[in-house]
């Protein structure tokens, strides 16, 4: 009895904190459904609920193209990040080889380099490589030092017993990787996937610069062209960002399932 009460109390406390924490998000969503007057008055709930802001955005002919561009680029890049990051992370996390520390330092060095700082030279490099807009965007993001760091860290933490048992059974490197390591690393993999999905989805500058026409824009960039900079009508901004966020939330919910499965997998012997 006491046990259950404790859980309920704890849940309520977490709920209160969560409510406070969610407030700005909540305000963003309700703001997206307000009319001009209510926005300016900073009311929390709209006097009249209106989907005007959304209609204005969805009417935009090119929104379908923007959405599919974003899905394609983000999807492929995230996949690439995982595959490449897994391989490199596994090597750094569990394999022994000379020059490991140098590799680590090399990768960290890249994390430190400010992207905005070398933007022009990166652009010129991509141009010299002769890549199209989509290819440039994908190649640009697919080698993620953060992914490697997270995955290598996680791989390191996998208890040796699993691997040893498998080796005794005669498993070779590839089998160990595919049958033990990757399944056990699912929580980290989903973390990497979610985080990169939202980063790349939200990436603003590069799609703008590489796009050859505004049909080639990604969703955030396209939406930004609908918003007037000189007047602070944030109704459309809120609507745009709510729309833009939905696919990422869906991805997160989907991945959550894998996250949960990963937990179960980790305790399997």
């Amino acid at each position: 009895m006491r046990f259950h009460l404790g859980r309920t109390i704890r849940t309520i406390i977490v709920g209160l904190i969560g409510a406070l924490y969610t407030f700005p998000t909540f305000w963003m969503i309700t703001s997206s459904m307000k009319l001009e007057k209510d926005l300016v008055a900073m009311k929390i709930f709209p006097k009249t609920w209106s989907l005007d802001n959304y209609y204005k955005i969805i009417e935009q002919a090119k929104i379908g193209a923007w959405f599919s561009n974003s899905m394609f680029i983000t999807g492929i890049t995230t996949l690439g990040v995982i595959v490449i990051g897994l391989m490199a992370g596994y090597a750094l996390g569990r394999l022994k080889f000379p020059g490991k520390n140098i590799m680590y330092a090399y990768i960290i060095a890249g994390m430190v380099i400010p992207g905005e700082g070398i933007m022009i030279t990166v652009f010129l490099t991509m141009k010299d490589l002769g890549l199209g807009a989509k290819a440039s965007l994908i190649i640009l993001h697919v080698a993620s030092a953060v992914a490697v760091m997270i995955l290598s860290n996680y791989f390191k933490g996998i208890a040796n017993e699993f691997e040893e048992a498998a080796r005794i059974d005669g498993a070779g490197e590839i089998k160990i990787l595919t049958h033990i390591m990757i399944p056990m690393a699912v929580p980290a993999i989903t973390t990497v996937a979610i985080v990169h999905f939202s980063w790349i989805w939200n990436d603003f500058l590069w799609p703008l610069i590489f796009a050859t026409s505004d049909k080639a824009y990604t969703l955030p960039v396209g939406l930004s062209t609908l918003i007037n900079n000189s007047d602070l009508r944030f109704g459309p901004v809120m609507a745009g960002s709510t729309l833009s966020v939905i696919p990422v939330v869906v991805m997160f919910l989907l991945f959550q399932r894998y996250f949960m499965r990963g937990i179960a997998g980790a305790t399997l012997k």
């Binding site: 022009i120 603003f204 500058l205 703008l208 610069i209 918003i227």
Partner: peptide, 22 residues
């Protein structure tokens, strides 16, 4: 006339287009 809209970052885009001959 084919329009291309660019908002934030317009001038950067103009400069990089010049560099890239586009």
């Amino acid at each position: 006339a084919v329009e291309q809209r660019a908002g934030e970052g317009y001038y950067k885009k103009l400069i990089t287009a010049y560099l890239g001959d586009t």
